[in-house]
Design a protein around this nucleic acid. Structure first.
Length: 412
DNA sequence: AAGACGGGGGC
DNA sequence: GCCCCAGTCTT
């Protein structure tokens, strides 16, 4: 069997479509022909498995059934529905793109490759996926599944991490799409990669195109595709503060919101800081780490007394590995038995609303806040119910959930 | 071209 | 516990 012949290509496309018509999974986004739903699913499916995406997808379309609804929603709601899915810029870009579609295209996904490609968060792969799956346009949609299948079937030894390889694969796919069948063909290619032509231990004996697979015939199916390995994440030891409020903040925990850009942008977290000097990843004794973190908190306007070490936690990103040591603190009530400036400010508002004279309180607030600075923007004392609206990265979600399941006492 | 950007699953 | 999975944006 000569490789990469016209016959090998025709056979591949025909048998693949035939297999797909019999084997395709019943997935929520395959039950509609709604381009918005196709779009959401394709964004969610980036770097994320189907089984993980399904519940997120269902909740998302229930809350944001149309592009207009998504465009007008508070960003906090969008982030909350993305909580746990990772790569949160996908959610922010999806909403930004929804606003673009409302502004530029009347709230409808345009049946236009260039217009779709111009939307935020939509790159070459997603452009092809939307154009083909939603509009049946003959555009390639080359993701990791497709590159794996093609590199095996056609025995392509180019490194799939290189940009030039994806371009090669795209031109190959253009020549493989049967007339009028772009939607099914692209989905079939990805479905084969997900179900049969898997990264490890491919199920060749059930593969509809095995007999003409060049990689298989060469005994190379386990060693393709060629892929340069990612470099390991750098280690980052950090100290985390689990601070129990006291006085008016009793039963609450202190959290803060991350900056609008960068890692975990605009998500909420427990306060934490780098343990030890920059670049150092050796052990840090608990006492100095707790004290250093207490000083950090004081600068944020929170006076807290170290209580004890709680437990370790890990959180791995693609490029950073957090080694977290979690310490419990107790908020120190300010002199006069008040819990701090925030509490007094709240009492002052209460007094205004009841019509009581606030003058004495205002003076007291000023005096208190001088000794005890107001909580800066971005910091908040939260109760368990606040977890329903605020989005947290997985590691902090777990820590806080664990705390509320077993407050005070025998945490971990 | 290289780095930033999360979290889950298989074995 | 260790390894694998990989789209888009930014620099």
């Amino acid at each position: 069997m000569p490789t990469n012949t016209l016959e090998q290509k025709r056979y591949f496309s025909f048998e693949l479509l035939n297999w797909y018509s019999r084997s395709k999974r019943d997935l929520p986004w395959r039950r509609h022909r709604n381009p918005f739903y196709i779009w959401i699913s394709e964004i969610m499916l980036q770097q994320t498995r189907v089984d993980t995406v399904i519940p997120y997808f269902n909740r998302f379309i229930a809350r944001f059934p149309t592009i207009e609804v998504l465009a007008e929603a508070p960003e906090e709601d969008v982030l909350k529905l993305w909580e746990g899915l990772g790569y949160y810029s996908r959610a922010r870009n999806l909403q930004a793109a929804a606003k673009q579609v409302v502004e530029l295209h009347g709230g409808q996904v345009p049946d236009d490759t260039q217009a779709v490609a111009a939307l935020k968060g939509i790159g070459p792969y997603t452009t092809g996926a939307i154009m083909s799956i939603a509009f049946n346009r003959p555009e390639p949609a080359v993701d990791g599944n497709v590159m794996r299948v093609l590199s095996r079937y056609f025995l392509i030894e180019e490194d799939i991490m290189k940009g030039s390889t994806r371009a090669h694969m795209e031109s190959l796919v253009r020549g493989l799409i049967p007339e009028g069948r772009a939607s099914d063909f692209n989905q079939a290619l990805m479905e084969l990669g997900a179900l049969v032509c898997t990264p490890k231990s491919p199920q060749c004996l059930t593969c509809p195109v095995m007999v003409h697979c060049s990689g298989r015939l060469a005994g190379r199916e386990e060693t393709l595709p060629v892929k340069t390995k990612a470099k390991p994440p750098r280690l980052e030891p950090r100290s985390v503060a689990l601070i129990e409020g006291s006085g008016a903040n009793a039963g609450r925990l202190l959290v803060r919101q991350r900056p609008a850009k960068g890692l975990l942008a605009r998500m909420w977290e427990l306060p934490h800081e780098l343990a030890g000097p920059e670049g150092y990843n050796g052990p840090v004794p608990d006492e100095p780490a707790m004290d250093h973190l207490a000083a950090h908190l004081l600068a944020a306007g929170v006076s807290a007394r170290p209580v004890r070490f709680v437990r370790e936690a890990e959180h791995t990103f693609s490029h950073i590995h957090w080694n977290l040591r979690v310490f419990q603190y107790e908020e120190l009530a300010s002199p006069g038995g008040k819990a701090g400036g925030q509490t007094l400010a709240a009492e002052q508002r209460t007094d205004y609303s009841t019509g009581a004279k606030p003058d004495a309180l205002i003076a007291l607030v000023a005096q208190e806040e001088q000794a005890h600075p107001v909580l800066p923007a971005g910091y908040r004392w939260i109760s368990e119910a606040d977890m329903d609206t605020m989005a947290f990265p997985k590691v902090f979600l777990d820590l806080i959930t664990e705390y509320y399941a077993n407050p005070k006492g025998t945490l971990a």
